[in-house]
């Protein structure tokens, strides 16, 4: 029921127009120039990313940490498409509901239930901005482990300065306790926050493969462990 079908169909249709042999709009005119003004803004944007300037407007050949190339990373999945809205508004109710459902389906829970890990490692992971950056200064995951970038957007313990794109999480475990529902809520938020906030700006750290289970458990320990400075 996720517009999976309709979204996917739309995507396929779009891809056909865009890349199928002939390339309806990308057809060169007599001068050999592609006519940008004959495309819709979306078509042109895709063309500029993937085709223009002899092979695209980005360094698309670079290999990515997760495998594949930059060309693959620039392809949008359904959620990214549905949430790319000019003006940053929300999609319609039906799409929002579909996003929630798909997000829920993407979440994989640890065998034996959600456990808290090592808060000290979690503290460093929540702080670290390392991981998955590419381009001119490629993050080599063999050299350092991937962090969560959480501090970019959140304040946790106040010994370090965090951002405020997301809500303040100082004292989180102390205030909310460690009941199963609250642990599940936070696990879900880290894994795929679109379950609760469709088209949120918080990344899907679990579904995207950004953080592994152990890192999620450690970051959660940082938020919930009574010993953690978050709960001082």
């Amino acid at each position: 029921m996720f517009k999976k079908t309709s979204l996917a169909a739309g995507v396929a249709a779009f891809a056909t127009i865009l890349f199928a042999g002939g390339c309806a709009f990308a057809e060169a005119d007599k001068s050999g120039q592609v006519d940008y003004t004959a495309m819709t803004p979306h078509e042109l944007a895709e063309y500029l990313i993937f085709e223009a300037n002899d092979g695209g407007g980005f360094n698309l050949a670079q290999e990515m940490q997760e495998g594949g190339t930059a060309r693959d990373r620039m392809q949008q999945d359904e959620l990214q498409k549905a949430c790319s809205i000019i003006g940053d508004g929300k999609p319609d109710e039906e799409t929002m509901a579909a996003i929630r459902t798909a997000a829920q389906e993407s979440i994989v829970y640890p065998e034996g239930g959600i456990q808290l890990g090592n808060w000290e490692r979690g503290r460093e992971l929540a702080w670290s901005g390392f991981g998955y950056r590419v381009g001119h200064n490629y993050d080599d995951h063999n050299v350092r482990e991937v962090g969560g970038t959480c501090y970019n957007c959140h304040q946790f313990a106040t010994d370090r300065t965090g951002g405020n794109v997301g809500p303040v999480l100082t004292g989180y475990g102390k205030m909310r306790g460690t009941s199963e529902p609250i642990l599940k809520y936070v696990y879900d938020m880290i894994y795929n926050p679109h379950v609760y906030f469709p088209c949120t700006h918080m990344p899907r750290f679990g579904s995207s493969g950004f953080l592994d289970k152990e890192s999620i458990a450690d970051i959660m320990a940082y938020m919930f462990d009574p010993e953690s400075p978050v709960n001082e």
């Binding site: 990373r73 990214q80 498409k81 995207s208």
Partner: peptide, 15 residues
């Protein structure tokens, strides 16, 4: 107009 689409376009590991 294409720039406006690029500005709103989500992709990559962080969406």
């Amino acid at each position: 107009d294409a720039g406006e689409v690029l500005f709103a376009r989500r992709a990559g590991m962080s969406d």
